[in-house]
């Protein structure tokens, strides 16, 4: 018996002494993630399922996206939200409500309000999706998530005016897609969690199909599921689509 113990201890000693493979550069991985997600034009139909302790709501929308700065969303259902449209132009956002027939610019503290009662704020939607523009990344370790090998990256904001001071990402090593994300406050408190539940492949790239967003501090919420029903990459989108006039256009 004593021999076995000695063999085990010696094996552990030698294994720990073996040279480990160096972790790849975090910024490199982050750039690959950004490249994977970036497309010039996108047209997307999606469903957003907002769940809390008492109810569940499903909101359908169609979104036109051009580059990083322009986005136009039209809500298709439920009847109460049908016809509501949102336009994002760089760091500005307008919302049109057919019931009031008014266009309102979302600014100041309104940006912090939730979008259609979900765990996402207007501000989250306004954020620059190219993370390497905002953060420096460091590879922390390797992990397995959803039976996929992932790099864990720790992101720290480059500038001071970034909403989330740091983030932790689980990046699929092969597909270069984020499978999990945690967003932290300056003091280190975990604020939001994102889990990619399903992925799909389009034009050789991997995209998230179903994402679960959760505001960790809001225990009343059971999260918001964002499901991409259809996605068209590099589609033709006319210029008028990203004009304020398009908000009133039916």
């Amino acid at each position: 018996m004593k021999k076995y113990y000695i063999v085990i201890i010696i094996s552990i000693f030698f294994m720990s002494a073996l040279p480990t493979a160096p972790l790849p550069d975090g910024m490199e991985i982050l750039k690959q993630v950004d490249d994977n997600i970036t497309a010039e034009n996108r047209i997307m139909t999606s469903r957003m399922i907002v769940r809390n302790r008492r109810s569940e709501r499903e909101i359908k929308a169609k979104t036109w996206i051009r580059g990083m700065d322009q986005a136009f969303t039209e809500y298709l259902s439920p009847a109460r939200e049908q016809g509501t449209k949102m336009l994002k132009e760089k760091d500005r956002m307008w919302i049109y409500s057919p019931s009031t027939d008014r266009i309102i610019q979302i600014a100041g503290h309104m940006l912090r309000q939730s979008v259609m009662g979900s765990d996402l704020s207007y501000e989250d939607m306004m954020e620059d999706p190219i993370l390497s523009n905002l953060y420096t990344a460091k590879t922390l370790s390797v992990d397995t998530l959803q039976e996929r090998l992932c790099w864990i990256l720790v992101l720290t904001s480059k500038k001071e005016d970034i909403a989330y001071h740091s983030r932790k990402l689980w990046v699929d090593q092969e597909r270069k897609i984020i499978l999990r994300e945690e967003r932290f406050a300056k003091g280190g408190t975990l604020l939001k969690e994102t889990d990619v539940l399903h992925v799909f492949q389009i034009d050789g790239r991997w995209y998230p199909k179903e994402i679960l967003y959760r505001n960790v501090l809001n225990q009343n919420s059971e999260g918001t599921r964002f499901i991409i029903e259809s996605l068209e990459l590099d589609a033709e989108i006319p210029d008028w689509r990203f004009s304020k006039a398009a908000l009133r256009r039916s």
């Binding site: 001071e160 005016d161 989330y164 001071h165 406050a185 300056k186 501090l217």
Partner: peptide, 15 residues
């Protein structure tokens, strides 16, 4: 209870 706020640069913090 937890308070979440933003500093003068707009970065979230909580305590």
């Amino acid at each position: 209870f937890i308070i979440q706020w933003r500093d003068r640069q707009g970065t979230f913090d909580a305590a």
